[in-house]
Design a protein around this nucleic acid. Structure first.
Lengths: 326, 326
DNA sequence: TTGAAAGCGCTAACAT
DNA sequence: ATGTTAGCGCTTTCAA
């Protein structure tokens, strides 16, 4: 039985390997010149002792941080209470684990982007992951964090980003509706300030215009509750509507719930589509577009962790998922 | 404009306040004796300089860690890919933010509880949050982390826990079914090793026994896919079943999907209930029991952060939510 | 290619 | 009640 003794430090490893602490450090951290012999001996010793570098000590001397900050822009703190955000945070936390870094989430009010500065000025912050960010916030990323920042959504010259092809995804949905005979297609949109939502709306508008059809838009906010209300509004304003495009699955499910409650057949009378392909979309047979959120979050987190030159924009495709609701 | 200069250290604060670094430390960290005058001057100086303690330095000297480890027990790594876990991780990350601690998630294989030891031996780990843990894992919490560990689910003499009153919640559901005239009630259970799931099953069995009714159990795994298959199995084995209790909302939604696909009316022919009240339960009009997951995660995370003596077990109630499916 | 030495920012004895 | 002092474990000049 191994007694619960003090865990090995770099000094222990160096001593066991018969080299100086500096050499051991160079081998473990992977910087500076080391002879193959030294490398080998240090690695062996480290393995044998179960050496794990002390993240705090490392961060201290390097002036680096110990955690990844996920900064989510939004109107209210409740934006953090969202399954998409949960997934991004949780995935980041998985990606960070092997690096010995933790993850923290904070809300940045839309009308007070300067909050980001306060948060990012903390030296404990090793990297920054912006979610649903605005141009104003992108401009406020402190210089110290340049190259240690990535954005999920829009990016900038100095902030690389990963994004979903929302336009393409929405276009595929609208084309499908058109191809299946729908001509009076309405949309429940997202908040206007959100670029990714705007791209969907623009794709919808563009396609309808091309087809010579009028746009029928009601503003929503991604929530199911708003979706219910929006469904009523759509049918009140345009009673002959035969399809409703939801900006999100939650929106679409709200729409469907309200329609069915009002005796409207889905998809018989009105076809309904979502966006995101949340787990329950499959259960509820919702036609939607799927997005690899985990892969996206992984890509973004990896960018800030790896510090390698990365392409300024990585676009992930949106894939049409046909089910029964449209 | 404030030039982007080096952030203030404790030394800067001490100098500005005209006291020694130790005094400043005592004021900021809140330990040891300090005069009201000193307290005041240090606090003022810290505010003025925008001082933020360096988490790495603090952790280093204290021998404490810099992150909270959320350890999730499960059969496969895919347990991390779950909305409940996402919510726990994300909530913890919110709670940890003001403490300057990050969060990390790792999977602990059920058949290899020792993995926990390896993970927790990392000195970077400041605290431990066990999720869906087993007795074997509870016994492996390293001594260093005693008092810095909490469990969501079962606990032990040395590990305080927060838990849901699954038994009570399930009992309320079964009673409701009974009260509404159902007598041939089946249940799609969870994996047998999970204590919280077992408690639900036992409540179900107990109530049926009391009523002199036979139990009808099919093993599930919380997933919708398994729910679909289980629905078929239930009706094959007991064709006259008039109600199905799902161990989770996903299970129940799978059950409902399959029943409807097979032309069975819900709740007309068979009533179906879920458990958890996920956001979409309301949209799909699922009768279920709701649990304050965010409050639970907050309570658990706070326990490990605050280090105060806490009650060994905090039970959160399960609240019956009546909708249309039963 | 390696070692010696300095110090990152902070806390906690210990002394006063 | 406060100051002095000695590190926590690591990286990184600087010399050799």
């Amino acid at each position: 039985m191994t007694t619960a003794r003090r865990p090995a430090t770099l000094d222990d490893v160096a001593r066991a390997a018969g080299v100086s602490r500096s050499t051991a450090s160079r081998v473990i951290a992977g910087n500076g010149f080391t002879s193959p012999v030294a490398r080998d001996r240090v690695r062996t010793a480290a393995d044998r002792l179960g050496y794990v570098p002390n993240a705090a000590a490392r961060a201290l001397v390097r002036g680096a941080g110990v955690r990844l900050l996920v900064a989510v822009a939004g109107a209210t703190p409740s934006v953090l209470d969202d399954s998409y955000i949960n997934q991004v945070v949780s995935t980041s936390a998985q990606v960070c684990a092997p690096y010995g870094l933790g993850v923290t989430v904070e809300w940045v009010p839309l009308d007070e982007p300067g909050r980001l500065t306060r948060l990012a000025d903390d030296r404990g912050v090793a990297g920054l992951l912006l979610v649903n960010t605005t141009d104003a916030m992108l401009g406020l990323v402190p210089r110290r964090l340049r190259g240690r920042t990535a954005s999920i959504g829009i990016g900038s010259a100095s902030v690389p980003s990963v994004d979903i092809d929302n336009g393409g995804g929405t276009a595929a949905i609208v084309r499908h509706l058109y191809a299946t005979g729908h001509r009076r297609i309405a949309m429940v949109t997202g908040p206007p300030w959100l670029t990714c939502a705007t791209r969907s709306v623009e794709a919808y508008r563009g396609l309808l215009r091309q087809a010579g059809l009028p746009a029928r838009e009601v503003v929503g906010d991604f929530s199911a509750a708003r979706g219910r209300a929006a469904a009523r509004e759509v049918l009140r304003r345009w009673p002959d509507t035969d399809a409703i495009v939801g900006i999100s699955d939650a929106t679409a499910l709200g729409v469907i719930g309200q329609l069915r409650a009002d005796g409207v057949q889905v998809p018989g009378d009105v076809a309904v589509t979502g966006f995101d392909d949340i787990p329950l979309a499959s259960v509820t047979a919702l036609t939607t577009a799927s997005h690899p959120v985990r892969r996206i979050a992984t890509a973004a987190a990896t960018m800030v962790l790896e510090q390698r030159p990365v392409p300024p924009l990585t676009v992930f495709p949106s894939a049409l998922v046909l089910r029964e609701s449209a």
